[in-house]
Design a protein around this nucleic acid. Structure first.
Lengths: 121, 121, 121, 121
DNA sequence: GTGGTCTAGACCACC
DNA sequence: GTGGTCTAGACCACA
């Protein structure tokens, strides 16, 4: 796992968990990997992985079953999707709009740039 | 001034200065407000304002004239614009593309969202 | 069975057993439901139910008859009642008194609140 | 500082902070002691103190001013009081009512017990 | 086996 | 000076 130094590792782990849920890889029925498993898998300290789990638990995205482990909440998929949508609306859209105005890009320019990006990747 | 807690204050100040330059409000001819003025205006510690100026000075966007104050560089406008363009390409575009894919937005959805945003503001 | 996450499950089970004894539902003459029965009934791991029984056995509230099962002790009713009284005096009363002081409730306020509670349930 | 082993230290610290706020000892205007100060004062690891602060910050009881420290929120007093009241209603009152019923105490018995308690302390 | 808490100590960014 | 993150390692309660 490659971490981006601009964001705390634990948040990146939390994000990764959300991605798995969005991809329907971790469903509410099955236990998600244990703190220790995640920690060794991602080569971080268990405390760091734990912190990510706490962060998600606070948002009711994952739930703890005592002595067993963590599970995705029943409505985890919707919750994550909603959260991400809201964040996108609140932060990304205004940010893009501002940048576009500053740089003099039209919406069609943006469209073009994104398409280029997708072709390259 | 309202600061976003996700980014260091000094970078947000630097950004604000760049915005002024992009808006042609601060031209190379005239002196930029002093560190102290900026600090009191934005209600931050003078050290923080200073740091923003240093940051800009390192990129040759502003120049210090000792004993007089700071001035926008001759080519500040072009410099800032180029820098912002590059950042936009490197960071924002990929970020948006990823989010769009995650959330299942098409480019036309994005277009719509941005237009809504512009109408509301 | 709904468990309160602030207390170990096995203690909550033990408490539940005590409640049955206090309610005269489980008398010294008859066998208490087996560990397995309790476990399936309450949807917990048999180990957890076993632990609850051990806990009660240590306090001589229940007795094990090897190969037969568990029975409430002859003096289980009195024992449980005494224990609960002591706990109430030692923990609950001081706790309530402290909270009341913090929140500015008088004893009459408390009286009122408890009556409301009883009417609602 | 004497900690009760039945509850995590960091929660007891958080509680202590709330008590100070309820006692109007720490008002929104002044900075509350730094993480390190609390840690040395209470003889715990700074991480433990930090954890308490995070816990309070999540509930918007204290706010962070970047690079300066933590402050009680403007409405901290009301927030804490409301929270405690709610908890009292939700947990303590039903708990007492249940115990009283089990032990056969009347409300006047309770009144008497609390008065005794207050006289002794 | 699971998670939870705590300590110790390091390093960093920020104000 | 402030808080924030991370590691390492220990110990514990619980299922």
């Amino acid at each position: 796992m490659n971490f981006d130094s601009r964001q705390p590792i634990y948040l990146q782990i939390a994000d990764h968990v959300c991605d798995q849920i969005l991809d329907r890889k971790w469903t509410p029925e099955e236990r998600i990997p244990s703190v220790r498993e995640i920690a060794t898998l991602m080569e971080v300290n268990p405390n760091t992985a734990m912190r990510a789990f706490h962060h998600l638990q606070e948002q009711d995205i994952i739930l703890q079953q005592r002595g067993v482990g963590y599970f995705a909440a029943e409505d985890a998929y919707e919750k994550v999707k909603n959260l991400k949508r809201k964040q996108f609306m609140k932060h990304d859209i205004p940010h893009i709009a501002e940048k576009m105005q500053q740089l003099g890009y039209s919406i069609d320019d943006l469209k073009q740039l994104i398409e280029d990006q997708q072709n390259n990747s």
